[in-house]
Design a binder for these strands. Structure first.
Lengths: 185, 185, 185, 185
DNA sequence: TATGAATGAGCCTTCATTCAT
DNA sequence: CATGAATGAAGGCTCATTCAT
C-alpha cells in the first residue's frame, strides 16, 4: 500500500507531473516573483515536494525549464528572417510582463548553473545576428548593441519584479516606451 | 545570559555603533538589496542584534538614516534654481552607483512606514517642480513626467542591484546612457 | 542544512508525533500555563519545531486538540438528561486537576481564534441549558448563572496553575470545596 | 560630565528613585500583570535600568516592596481589635483589584526569595489570629481556616490577573461575591 | 551613584531539503 | 516512482541583565 492521500500514479505520471510543475512554476513565479517558495509551486502543481526535487534539483533548473518554453517561442520567431528585432523584442516584453521570472534567466546573477548562462548566450547571439542584418534590424539605432538590448530587457524585468501584480501591465508599457525610445531613434 | 563573545564597550560606543550600522547597512543594502537580512547588517557592523533594534526599530528607519545624507545632497542641489533636472539626475545616478538601495526608497513598495513615502514624495515633487520650469528642465523631452524620471532611476537601481560590484560603474554608465536617451530628445 | 541530531523517522512517525505533541502540550500547559513556549512543547515531544507547526499551525489549534477529548467527555455526560450540573462540574474539576490549562480555553482571553470561542461557547450553553431545567440543576442555588459557574471553574484552574504538582490534588479539593459552597445553598 | 539625557542627580535622589520605582511598579503591574517588562517599569519611573537593578536586584524584591506598602495598610487595620476579618478582607480585595500583582506575593510560587514567604506568613498568621477571636471573626463560618481565606484571596487574584483592565472591577465583584458565599454561611 | 547603551539568549515562524514508506 | 512528513537552520524580534562612563 502506498502513502496516504493522493495515490502513486506510477511512472506514467512522470511526464505529466513535470509539465504540471512547469506550468505551476510559471504561474507562481509570475505571481510571487522568482523567490516564491518551492512548496507553493509543488502545491500548485498538485504534487509532493519530492517530485519537484526529482525533476528539478535546483530552483534554477526549474526556472530553466520554464524559460525553455519561452525561448522556444522567441527562437522560432527569430528564425523567420522576415521578423525584425522589434518583433522579437515585442514578444520578449510580452513574456516578461506575464512572467517576470523569465528575467532571472536573461540576467543571470547569483547562480552557478552553467546552463543558465548558456541559454542567455543563445538568446543574446540570436539578437546579435539579427542586429547585423539591416533588414532585420527594425527601428533600433545604429549604435545599439545586443548588450544594450539585453540591458534594456533586464531593466524592464527588474522593475516588473518589484511591481505589484495589478500595476504590472501598465508599468510594463510605460517602462518599455521609455526604453524603446532609448534604443530607437 | 549576557556577554560572552564581544565585550560591552559601553555607552561611548553608541555613536560609533550607530555609524557602523549605517555604514554596514549601506554596504549590505547595496550588495543584497533592500531585503537583506538585518542580522547580516548587525553582523557586518560588528554589533549585537539588540543594538541594531535600539538604534533603528524598523528596517525603514535604518534605510532612512542610510539615505539621509544622500537625500540632503540632492535637495541642496535642487534648491538651487540654476540647477537643472539633468544636474539632479547626475547626482542621483552617482549615488545609486555607489549605493544602489537608494532606490528602494524612491520606489517604495511593500512598506507601510509613512516616512518612506514622505521622503519619496519629497524627491518626486522636487523633480516635478523643476520640470515645470523650462529653465530648470534641462534636456528632458516635453512629454516626460516626474513619474517617467523616477521609473528610469528605479530601473537603473534595479539593474545595478543585480550587478557584480566590479562591473557596477560600467553598467551604470551604459544603462544610464540608454535611459537618458529615452528621457531626452 | 537538515538532519544532524535526530534522524528523520519518516511519515510513519506522523501519528506518533501528533500524539506526542498533544501529550507534551497537555503536560506543559498544565505545568506552565497556556502561555508556555511552543519550543518547550516541541522539545518535550521530542520533535523539531517544524513538526509542531505542521500539525498545529497555531497555539490555539494545539490547545483545541489537547482538550478535544476532555470536551468530548464533558459533552457526552451533559447530553445525558439524567445528569446534573453537579455531575458535569465534577468531571470538569477532575479534568482541570489533571491538566489545568483546560480553562485557558473556557476563559478565552487574548485569542482571536474563533474556534476557541466557539468551544467555550458550547460548554457555556451546555451548562446554561442544564441550569434551566430544575431536574438537571443539581444543587446549585437559584440565582447562580452559567457565568458564575465558569468563573468558579476558571478560578480553580488559575490557582491550580500556580500550584506545585505534588500538592495539586489536595489544593483542588480544598479549593473546589470552597467554590462549591459558594455555588450551592 | 555625566551621561547624556537626564542628569545624575546624586545620592540625594536615591530615596526618590526608589519611591518612584515602587509607584511605577505598582502601576505597571496592575496594568500589565506581574510579568510586565522591567524596562517599562524603569521607563515609567523615569529612571535608568541600572537604578532599578541597584534598588531591586530581582523582580521579586520589587514586588516585595510594592507589597510592603499594601501589607502595612492591612496590618494597621488588623491591629485594631475592633476590626473583623471581613473588614480585613475587604481591604485586601480592594488592593488586589487595584493591583493584581499583589497576589504574586500572597501565593508565592516559583520564587526562591525567602522574604516573600516570610511576608505571606506574616499576613497569614495575622488573619489566623483574628479568626481565633470570635469577636473579630466576622461572618466567616466556623470551619473556615486561614488557609481557606488565603486560598480564596489567591483565587481572586489569579483570575483578576487574567482579566482585562476594563472588566476588572466587575469581575472582582462577581468573583468575590461567590467566594465570600463560600466562606461565610 | 545614575544613566542608558550593549549584549546575547531565546522564542516565534518559515522553508529548503531529505528520506522512510 | 510518488508522497508528504520530518528536520533544523536561519531570520525577526524582545528582554533581562551587565557595565563603561
Amino acid at each position: 500500500m502506498t502513502a496516504s492521500g493522493r495515490a502513486n500514479r506510477g511512472p506514467k505520471a512522470a511526464a505529466g507531473n513535470r509539465a504540471a510543475l512547469i506550468r505551476a512554476a510559471r504561474e507562481v513565479f509570475a505571481e510571487n516573483g522568482f523567490d516564491a517558495t518551492l512548496s507553493s509551486i509543488a502545491r500548485t502543481a498538485g504534487v509532493g515536494q519530492g517530485v519537484l526535487y526529482r525533476h528539478f534539483p535546483t530552483r534554477e533548473s526549474l526556472a530553466l525549464a520554464v524559460f525553455e518554453e519561452n525561448i522556444a517561442e522567441v527562437e522560432e520567431l527569430a528564425a523567420d528572417p522576415s521578423s525584425t528585432v522589434d518583433d522579437v523584442l515585442a514578444v520578449i516584453v510580452e513574456q516578461i510582463t506575464t512572467s517576470a521570472a523569465f528575467v532571472a534567466m536573461i540576467n543571470p546573477t547569483g547562480t552557478d548553473d552553467p546552463r543558465v548562462g548558456e541559454v542567455a548566450g543563445r538568446l543574446m547571439s540570436l539578437v546579435a545576428g539579427k542586429l547585423e542584418d539591416p533588414s532585420q534590424r527594425g527601428s533600433l539605432r545604429a549604435d545599439v548593441t545586443a548588450s544594450d538590448v539585453f540591458m534594456a530587457v533586464a531593466m524592464l524585468a527588474a522593475i516588473l519584479l518589484k511591481t505589484d501584480g495589478r500595476s504590472k501591465r501598465q508599468m510594463a508599457q510605460q517602462a518599455w516606451a521609455l526604453l524603446e525610445r532609448g534604443l530607437t531613434r
